[in-house]
Design a protein around this nucleic acid. Structure first.
Lengths: 295, 295
DNA sequence: CGGGTCTTTGATTAGGTTCAATAAGAGTGG
DNA sequence: CCACTCTTATTGAACCTAATCAAAGACCCG
């Protein structure tokens, strides 16, 4: 079971990294051009109801190839996208043309939401692999909330979810060390792969070190070094794009070295302000390992 | 005119920083307990239409005093809040009890949105000054979208705006230097004060250095030092909580010293990858000034 | 006036960036 | 199929920004 999933994942993964596999045979449901409402709800992890059985309401799919741009900054907004399969990145581009990665949408993720406000996309979306996306015209999106009242809440909910995600990114960038960021990134990826039915223990990165670094507010060198360090410690295995998770819990609880920017006093009543960074390894574990772990 | 605004701002500001002024006489429209839909739209900067004239639809206000908590993390969500007057902060609290400031809501801002997804607030909101908030029960919020179709888009738009704001925060935290973050923070505050009809040139900070630092992913010392540096250079004047903006453009274009995490190659064609940080002052300006400005 | 909070400033350290050089793949074309 | 090239990844060394530690001053409040 687990092995099968790994296999599945890896084969698709290597196809991805090959950029357009020579044979596309069997690659996703290539011919799938439309989804009905029920399928859409399942994709978005929204509870579906019996009233959604009308199969007249269909949603078109579109395919993008690795490297293709789905939308660019400033382009008039009119449709949202839901990832049916494949991997993407969304980026902001600053005045010097430098990219800042905002997210890595994958199966079940919604993107394009940032275009609603100004009626123009605020970010750019690029396919990191061949992708199959469900088009969700914004008009259709809002109409959905009206015709299916049970869905109205879901619409808002999905947007709220995005907001919470961004918040946790802000919190991560503001308070965590490089090691902790990379560790959480790996855990997060692992969990998303698990959600998608792939292996959470072994997967291929779809993005470059540079893109990871941009996403995490680090340089590609730091990302590379950190991965190597985790590898040496035995938390993960690394070989280029292929990552094996050895100790998910360790990664999850990895400590942010800098107690950093957060408040000391208010919570000083509790035993927070945890272990001073200076505590020496007292156990049997290798020094580096101990240092990396949360108190 | 400008002077009046400044005066207005400052007097209220000093009241704020005093934490509960001895006399509350004349403080805001203290007695205001309800708003109608038109007023709400104005507050949220949403275009209002003639169909919104029914004055049966009223929205209750609530007052909070400095330091009071509006909602906490995990508390069951059922209402959104719109700031009618006053200043707040929203924070995330990590496993050690440390705060991470996410935003500083002020007049016209909506918060509580992060509670929609899980039906529980994902963040905590605290009043930094006496506040007058409009309660917007989520049920009423969604109903509004149904009864006033013109508003439906606005509902989504407001949420989208929040998302874009978070995105720009992520981008800032991921790519800008300490100086640049503080500079942009000041500019942003300045503009928001201008929107609210106050002076954009002279205002009082409602938050501590520590809170600013948390918001910007810096320590309070760095914030303090940076403000002092800006002061010496003549970009601003600082005296405790009181800030005077002297050169808004300079602040706006302030360069991030580390070209940092962004991509070098893609934009390498242009003359970006700007001046190496090591270049010596060659002009007439003081060294520090030159170093701080964008190429 | 004394206690508490917030701010400023200095000295020192360290985490992460920058610069640089090498290696490993992947895609192209002869 | 292999040489050539371009992109991506790894690793080292030096430097620098911002964090940490520390202490003193400013402001507010009872």
């Amino acid at each position: 079971m687990g092995a099968t999933q790994v296999q599945e994942n890896r084969s698709e993964a290597s196809a991805m990294s090959m950029r357009l596999p020579p044979m596309e045979a069997g690659w996703q449901r290539q011919g799938k051009l439309w989804s009905n409402l029920k399928e859409l709800c399942a994709l978005l992890r929204i509870p579906a109801t019996s009233t959604m059985n009308d199969d007249d309401l269909l949603f078109q799919h579109v395919q993008f190839k690795t490297g293709q741009r789905i939308h660019t900054i400033g382009q008039p907004f009119d449709t949202l996208y839901i990832v049916h399969s494949g991997f993407l990145k969304t980026v902001l581009i600053d005045e010097y043309g430098n990219e800042q990665v905002l997210s890595f949408p994958m199966k079940g993720d919604l993107f394009g939401v940032d275009g609603i406000h100004t009626r123009r996309y605020a970010s750019e979306a690029v396919a990191l692999s061949n992708c199959d996306l469900v088009l969700l015209p914004f008009k259709k999106f809002t109409a959905l909330g009206r015709t299916h009242i049970e869905l109205e809440h879901a619409m808002y909910s999905v947007m709220s979810r995005e907001l919470v995600r961004e918040q946790s990114m802000v919190s991560m960038l503001g308070a965590l060390s490089a090691e902790a960021r990379v560790a959480r990134f790996l855990v997060s990826l692992s969990e998303r792969f698990a959600d998608m039915g792939y292996s959470s223990k072994l997967f291929n990165l779809r993005m470059t070190r540079h893109e990871i670094g941009s996403y995490l507010g680090l340089t590609l060198e730091t990302v590379s070094r950190t991965l190597s360090a985790f590898n040496e410690i035995g938390l993960i295995t690394v070989d280029q794009r292929s990552i094996g998770i050895c100790d998910a819990d360790a990664l999850r609880t990895l400590r942010r070295l800098p107690p950093s920017t957060t408040r000391n006093r208010q919570a000083a009543g509790r035993k927070n302000r945890a272990a001073p960074v200076t505590d020496e390894p007292s156990g049997a574990e290798p020094a580096t390992w101990d240092q990396l772990m949360s108190a």
